[in-house]
Design a protein around this nucleic acid. Structure first.
Length: 850
RNA sequence: GCCGAGGUGGCGGAAUUGGUAGACGCGCCGGUCUCAAAAACCGGUGAGGGCAACCUCAUGUGGGUUCGAUUCCCACCCUCGGCACCA
């Protein structure tokens, strides 16, 4: 029964809590599931999460890396999407116009391999898996704007892959070249350098072979300096990712040295260039060495007595797989080529060798060898009894003796035996010698990169067809833009080489103007092409262009991108390149796609990464069936900060379940008719403390959500609830009812980005003016409400904690000193020693030094 | 070898413009409820010592700066991740 208090307000415990005082009810999973479905349907029907392309509000674009449709969400996905959803929901409540879309990276080999195995269609296989995963995402209550759903195998999407390809082609950034490429013998396709990991195919794990084939490349190196330099402006990217990209780009500055090549009689027969970063060692060159693939090797040995022997050696090196060749501590092998290089700095004639330790695709594919100061050259020289001469010595020691060297002296030092440069230190000498050589015409300064152009053609079916045909002269020509998309055909046959070559309908292109038939390109694009720009497409799916420029410029760049560290190089580097390209042709006005990047940690079980092959997976579906989505989300957010690895714990998720039950019970028993206003004048000290804690929790949760410290945000809400119990334990007053009324609304709101279903249910149950909690603005607090009248001062003697004192917040140092020194428990430690110093940190701590 | 991140109870983790180390949660121990169990709720829980109030020790190791160090400096050890015969 409700009673009426003064001014018609109900009061007393039995009033502001409903009569059922059973605080310990545990909700059933059926109840949880039913409210989850109820609110998911509600949100969908009301289009609560639709982003507005014509809004005047401040925008916020949250994005997770779109997944490959593998068939089922794993815990890593759940973690990734939960983090993104919390951010999206939080920003919406803060009043931003939020874009939060989802799609699928749906081209790729697994679909094709599965289709071959089951004799079915990659399209059906993929569509089925996408449907399953979308259902799971919906079950998680993720607040995506589903009206912007996209997937790469949609002709409306890959049409624009082809369009971008043609724009790049027109700008000369796409080219076809016969070159030595990485061939995956299992997946029967070429791979980009980035897709070769430790000499093995990134998907198949097969040892990659080198093959010379004509392939399509994208000139990513055209933007190499921007790709490197702009990393410095990405303040909100993890240092680790930026470092990985810098390493991958691998810029190094050095000098190209030009050698005259002479025969044994000293007659000039050719020239050669080498690259070095150690110009300070040029006076110590003892031989020059080429990579096996260097074209001059074959030229110079032609017709020589040892031609066959050396040619066989070169062939054997070329045949070696990357694994064999790059093994650490590999023995170095080489052959003399029968010709000599003349060192321009001192005129010395040194032999030219070919060796397996020199790489063709770095620098010039040829190296000046200085055995005394390079460990590889040193080992090679010792093996083949080549001379060693010292040109650098350690600054504080006598000159090294070549004969006594056990290993190369690779550190910087002071030059010796280097003519006019003797006595110069290495760092200065590198610059001085480079400049001198440049003046003399011996060489030039240059910059080289590890980054190579991106090989994008694949001899597989399930990808975007490359929009090219070959004219009468067999020159590649782009398909006319009004003929796009070039549709991926269905009449193909697997198992007979490149699948598109088996398609009668596809093989030939008929020029719409002349009716002439041409041969089409039958390779498809690397799927990383698809994922390099999809985030721009989300901004505007309904236009007949790639996207509306203004709309794209409004939403982009992505404010928060979230994904796994495994994409630190490939996807992120390619996306940055695409952005720079699209900007260069005037399509967009920003030069970096992702403002802030969060790489979430992996989910582990017993310290190991969950994986199907290891059999140590926890199925998120099972957890949702057992505890509900909200408890799963809460656990994942609470167990570890987003960047850290997360150790799965079957027991700990029950803690999240308990906490949600507690909030629910508490709210259920609460009488929603009770007035929310708090009359400040009638507050007791305990009431004020509770009000202050409410304000402090708003502050803490807000700050933590901004900095993605979800674990501490949740813990501060738990602490608040613990304190509520203590607060209610005493005498019940109407004021307490008001204080609690306000508090419970705050808790539900603060928690709602993390556990949206339970919070929406409770928010609606306690009666709210908004259609949805999503539309309720984020709670604010008054800084003044945080002020405390009394504070606890920690008192130390000589830095050791000896007591705690409750004093007025504004107490002066002298007053405090008096109180502290009068206290027996402090005097005990001071005894009769003189006080040397009294340190007071306002409102916090005092230290008596004796 | 180079580059980056990190090392805190039985476990996940908190605390850094230098100021109460171990918040919060899990687990464990004890209790309430129950015929009993589960669930739920309440209390305790770094180690060592003491009947107790309390005391001592403790944030990978060893030093240093400071009234005071998980936090700053120096040297080292270990773990994880990336790159690497890159000239």
């Amino acid at each position: 029964m409700k009673q009426q208090g003064p001014d018609n307000r109900p009061f007393l415990f039995s009033v502001y809590f409903k009569e059922n005082k059973n605080m310990s009810k545990s909700y059933t999973i059926e109840e949880i599931k039913s409210i989850e479905i109820k609110w998911q349907n509600f949100w969908a029907e009301k289009k609560i999460f639709a982003a507005d392309n014509n809004s005047t509000k401040k925008k916020y674009y949250v994005l997770e890396m779109y997944p490959y449709p593998s068939g089922k969400l794993h815990m890593g996905h759940v973690r990734n999407y939960t983090i993104g959803d919390v951010i999206a929901r939080f920003r919406r409540m803060q009043g931003y116009n939020v874009l939060y879309p989802m799609g699928f990276d749906s081209f790729g080999l697994p679909a094709e391999n599965a289709a071959i195995k089951n004799n079915s269609s990659p399209r059906d296989w993929t569509n089925k898996r996408m449907d399953d995963m979308v259902a799971q995402m919906k079950q998680m209550g993720l607040s995506y704007d589903w009206s912007r759903f996209l997937f790469s195998h949609d002709p409306d999407y890959y049409k624009w892959n082809q369009w971008i390809f043609i724009q790049m082609f027109k700008k000369g950034l796409v080219y076809k070249k016969k070159s030595l490429v990485n061939w995956d013998p299992v997946d029967q396709t070429v791979l980009a350098n980035e897709q070769v990991i430790d000499g093995k195919g990134w998907r198949s794990g097969a040892e990659v072979e080198k093959k010379e084939i004509e392939q399509w490349f994208i000139k990513i190196t055209a933007f190499v300096e921007d790709l490197l330099n702009d990393l410095d402006g990405l303040d909100d990217w993890p240092e680790q990712v930026k470092t990985m990209q810098r390493n991958w780009i691998g810029k190094s500055e050095g000098t190209i040295i030009r050698f005259d090549v002479v025969d044994e009689n000293g007659n000039k027969i050719d020239e050669l260039e080498t690259f070095t970063t150690r110009a300070d060692t040029v006076f110590g060159i003892e031989y020059v060495v080429l990579a096996a693939e260097h074209p001059k090797c074959k030229k110079w040995i032609h017709g020589k007595a040892f031609e066959t022997e050396v040619a066989d050696f070169i062939k054997s090196v070329e045949k070696q797989s990357l694994v064999e060749r790059l093994g650490e501590g590999k023995d170095k092998n080489g052959k003399f080529l029968g010709v000599y290089a003349v060192n321009p700095v001192n005129g010395r004639k040194v032999p030219i060798w070919v060796a397996d330790y020199v790489l063709m695709d770095y620098g010039t594919g040829a190296v000046m060898a200085v055995p005394a100061h390079d460990q590889r050259d040193f080992l090679f020289a010792k093996k083949y009894q080549l001379p060693v001469s010292v040109v650098i010595k350690s600054a504080d020691k006598a000159s090294l003796l070549a004969d006594e060297l056990k290993e190369a002296f690779v550190e910087e030092g002071v030059l010796v035996n280097s003519a006019q440069f003797d006595g110069t230190n290495s760092a200065k000498a590198i610059a001085a010698i480079a400049q001198w050589m440049e003046e003399k015409g011996f060489g030039c300064r240059t910059t080289t990169y590890r980054l190579k152009d991106w090989l994008i053609s694949r001899q597989r079916y399930w990808g975007t067809p490359i929009p090219i045909y070959y004219d009468e002269n067999n020159d590649p020509q782009p398909i006319a833009e009004d003929q796009l998309p070039v549709i991926l055909p269905d009449d193909i046959e697997f198992g007979r080489g490149n699948p598109l070559e088996t398609s009668e309908s596809f093989k030939f292109y008929t020029d719409p103007n002349t009716g002439k038939k041409y041969r089409r390109e039958t390779d498809t694009m690397d799927t990383f092409f698809d994922s390099s720009w999809y985030y721009m497409r989300y901004t505007d799916l309904n236009t007949k262009q790639i996207f509306d420029k203004d709309v794209c410029n409004y939403w982009m760049p992505v404010d928060q991108y979230i994904g796994g560290i495994e994409h630190a190089i490939l996807h992120l580097l390619y996306s940055r390149f695409f952005t720079k390209f699209l900007k260069s042709i005037g399509m967009i006005n920003y030069s970096e796609p992702f403002k802030r990047l969060l790489t979430q940690g992996m989910v582990l079980l017993d310290g190991e990464v969950m994986s199907k092959s290891k059999g140590n997976v926890v199925d998120p579906d099972e957890m949702i069936q057992k505890y509900g989505t909200d408890a799963l989300r809460l656990f994942i957010l609470f167990a570890a900060p987003p960047k850290d690895q997360l150790e799965w714990n079957d027991k700990a998720i029950e803690g999240s379940w308990r906490f949600l039950n507690r909030i629910w019970n508490f709210t259920e028993q609460y009488n929603p008719d009770f007035k929310e206003d708090v009359d400040l004048a009638s507050l007791s000290a305990a009431d004020k403390d509770m009000e202050r804690e409410r304000a402090a929790t708003i502050k803490k949760v807000t700050e933590d959500l901004i900095s993605y410290k979800f674990n501490t945000a949740i813990s501060s809400l738990m602490i608040l609830m613990n304190n509520v119990d203590k607060y209610l334990a005493g005498e019940q007053t109407p004021v307490k009812g008001s204080v609690i009324n306000r508090l419970i609304r705050t808790v539900i709101q603060l928690l709602s980005p993390m556990t949206p279903h339970v919070c929406e249910e409770l928010w609606q149950n306690i009666g709210s003016p908004q259609e949805s909690i999503v539309h309720a603005l984020w709670p604010e607090f008054d800084e003044a409400a945080l002020k405390q009248d009394t504070v606890q001062i920690v008192v130390q003697v000589n830095g050791k904690l000896r007591g705690k004192f409750d004093v007025p917040a504004e107490i002066s140092e002298d007053d405090l000193k008096e109180i502290v020194l009068a206290d027996d428990s402090i005097q005990k430690f001071i005894q009769n020693k003189p006080i040397r110093k009294f340190i007071y940190i306002k409102g916090k701590l005092a230290n008596v030094v004796v």
